[in-house]
Structures are given as structure tokens and as C-alpha cells.
Amino acid sequence: MSTVLKSDSKPGTAASTASSIKAKQSLGTRIRRLNIPGGLGGWIWLAVIIIPVYYIVITSLKTSEGYFGQNPMALPTSPTLENYQLVIEANFSTYFMNSVIVTLGSVVPTVLIAFMAAFAIVRGKGRYLKFVNGVFLMGLAIPLQATIIPIYLMIIRLNLYDSLLAIMLPSIAFAIPLTVLILSNFIRDVPNELFESMRLDGCSEWQTMWRLALPLTKPAIVTVAIYNGLHVWNGFLLPLVLTQSPGLRVLPLGLWSFQGEFSVNIPAVLASVVLSTLPILVIYVLGRRQLVSGLTAGFSK
């Protein structure tokens, strides 16, 4: 045993390659042994996830005769898009546009100002920056719901009640702590030599931030943008409390009102659910890797 370990410490020798192959093989058997209970559990959870999703999609494609007449889990005999048409004609596009405006209007400023703050916290020194970092870390534990009444009061006093801006301002504030945390973790990973060489070239911190830190942090920025976007897109309480006109409803609120309007037309309600999720699905398909890897990097560091 000890000889194997010894040779392992000398990289490049024939013995070490042999031992690493051995290790790989045994790692393979380890996973293969786990396979049966692990795989079973994995497939069960897949069923738990997929069955409701399947039901939502197929029901949204059914006519009301199909919905009332067929087995609920059967594929629609005559699939139709009439539910989608009904939903789109019932103000869906307005809700959709409102959601797009609120999401972009929250995410873009959040990422921009959080990036600047994160850069300063990582690159700078001193009590003030430590204090700011501490404030943001504490902010992670503030539940948004608990502050909704003063936010409501402030928004009324600022004459912003019943506007999309009313949703954006608190959304930005509550997205900042986590965004700063994730971005500063990424900026901390930039090798110090790079900053050093920028400095020797005579670049100011401001130039270093845009020319060096920003390009290198791009994957993390995409990640936090998607993460925050998801939260704002799906947010319910802020729009519920801070707006009231039907013309200013964002999608989750729109879904809720559809549910009241079409309470007898379940396929139409589910079509609205699918439609509201489609844009997020597209982003998930395109940016999944960045979303997944970035999120875990932010949390496990």
C-alpha cells in the first residue's frame, strides 16, 4: 500500500499513471454499487416532478369537451391552441410587457450598482468597506415580506403607488445583498497579478473595474442577472400590494386574476400558466449551465 502511495506522489512516473487508472476504476465501481437505490430514488423523484408538469401541458391543449370527457392523464384526442388564443386575447400581452419592463428595470440597475459595490469591497481596504460588506451580509436575512407595510407607505408618499416603478425600487434593494455577495466572490478569484499589471500600466481603479474585472466576471454577471430576473419575474407580493389597475398587472398577478375570471375553464387557466413560464424556459435552455454553475459557486464559497 505504502509503495503505491509513494509512487503516486511522483507525478509522471509509470507507476502513478497505473495507480490513478486503478483509482478511476474503483471509483467507477463505487458509483455502480450506489446505482440501484440511488437510481430508483432518482426515477421516483422524476415522476414526482414530471407528472404535474405533464398534466399542466396536456390539459392546456384540451378542449373543454376533452377536459370533461377524457381521462385526465390521456393525451388530448384533438389538441387545440384555442385556450392559448383566449388567454392572449384577454390582456395577456399587457401583463407580459409589464413583467418584461419590471424585470429589466430591476435587474439591469441591480447588477450594475452591485458590481461596482462588489469591486470596491474586494479591491479596497478600510473600516468603511468592511462595514458596508457587513450591512449587505445582514441584509441577506431581512425577509422582504416583513417590510412590505413601510414600503407601501413610502411608495404612497412618493406618489408612486400603482406604477411599475413602485415594484422596481424595492426589488432592486432586496436583490442587492445576494448579488454583491456572489459577484464579490467571483472578483476575489481574479488573480492579483492581473490587477497588479493593470496598475503598473497606469490604469485607474475605475478603468481596471470596467476593462479587467467586468469581462472576467461576465459569467457571474449573467448568472446573477438570470437569478434576480427569475425572482422579479415570479414576484407576487410587491405587485399585489403596490399596484391595483388591471393595466399594470404583472404576470403572476395576471394569472391570479385569470384564475378568477376563467374559474370554470381550467384548460385556459393552465394555458396561462404555461405561457407565463415560456420565456423563463427559453432562458433556462439557453443559459442553464451558467445559471447552475454560478449559483452553486455563490453559495458554496
Binding site: 469591497i121 468597506l129 413601510p150 434593494a173
Partner: peptide, 21 residues
């Protein structure tokens, strides 16, 4: 120079999260 960069984020956070708190 660097502490100034934190001001926009700090402003939003204080006004719409800390003050409501």
C-alpha cells in the same frame, strides 16, 4: 476613490430595505 463605488448600492439598500425595516 473606491468607497464611492458602493454608494449607489448602499443608497438603494438603505432607502428601500433598511429604512422600511
Amino acid at each position: 476613490a473606491l468607497p464611492w463605488l458602493t454608494l449607489p448600492a448602499l443608497f438603494f439598500f438603505v432607502v428601500f430595505a433598511v429604512i422600511p425595516l
